[in-house]
């Protein structure tokens, strides 16, 4: 078995090696050499984290079911959901771009929320590791850069302004849900997920290894 050192941390930006120290909740340890964040102590315990993830799941459903923008032009009405927006790209010569767009604003956030629900739901029962925990954690790390809810929100706002000179524009319920999802997903799927490894490490008392 390969030897590993949970008391050490290596800066992923410059390879400097440090001994881990316990941090107070909310504190951040930075690399003395390149100033990158080494790790931070989460403000959330597993129960709160799970609660916020459930809230993110609710926001996700509302954001995807209800229209984000409604417009009217001379008595004609039209509205669009996130999915319809991605699908609108699928017509004409630019069709292939609809796939990454749908992934970035719908599929990836959905997977992040689902994986977190799965992992946290098990972890809160005595620090247990869910079936497929290793794969889920690797996927969560890999998915993070491709989640673009905040870009979607800015895109919706720019579109509203762009169209407001041409048609009557009204925000739909989806826009508020997207804004809520943006905030919640930033909190729950941030880079602090590493400590779940230590939290769910068997043989350790609960709550330790948060540093």
């Amino acid at each position: 078995m390969l030897k590993s050192f949970t008391n050490l941390v290596v800066c992923e930006h410059c390879d400097a090696t440090y001994t881990r120290v316990a941090l107070a909740p909310g504190e951040v340890a930075r690399c003395g050499q390149c100033d990158a964040v080494l790790y931070r102590a989460s403000l959330l315990d597993v129960d709160r984290w799970l609660a916020l993830t459930v809230a993110a799941a609710v926001a996700f459903v509302i954001a995807n079911v209800s229209p984000v923008v409604k417009i009217s032009l001379q008595g004609l009405h039209s509205q669009a959901t996130l999915w319809q927006s991605a699908a609108a790209l699928a017509h004409g010569p630019a069709a292939p771009i609809a796939v990454p767009t749908a992934l970035a604003i719908i599929v990836v956030p959905f997977m992040q929320v689902s994986l977190l629900l799965w992992v946290l739901g098990h972890a809160r029962r005595g620090g247990r590791r869910a079936p497929g925990f290793r794969l889920a954690m690797r996927m969560l790390a890999g998915l993070r850069p491709w989640s673009m809810v905040e870009v979607a929100l800015l895109g919706i706002l720019v579109s509203v302004i762009k169209l407001s000179s041409m048609v009557e524009v009204a925000p739909g319920a989806g826009i508020w849900a997207t804004a809520a999802l943006m905030i919640l997903i930033t909190i729950v799927a941030s880079r602090d997920i590493h400590w779940l490894w230590e939290f769910t490490d068997r043989g350790r008392p609960r709550g330790e290894g948060r540093s």
Binding site: V68, V69, I71, L73, Q74, L76, S78, Q79, A80, Q84, S85, A86, A87, A88, L89, H91, G92, A94, I97, A98, T101, A104, I105, P145, W146, M148, V151, A152, L154, G155, I156, V158, S159, K162, L163, M166, V167
Partner: peptide, 27 residues
Amino acid sequence: YWSMLDVLVVAVVAALIRFHGLADIEP
């Protein structure tokens, strides 16, 4: 990844403006 903004603007606008004949926006 903020550069994806333009793609999303085109997506939202094209999804909304489809009043056949009167006004249409296509990617």
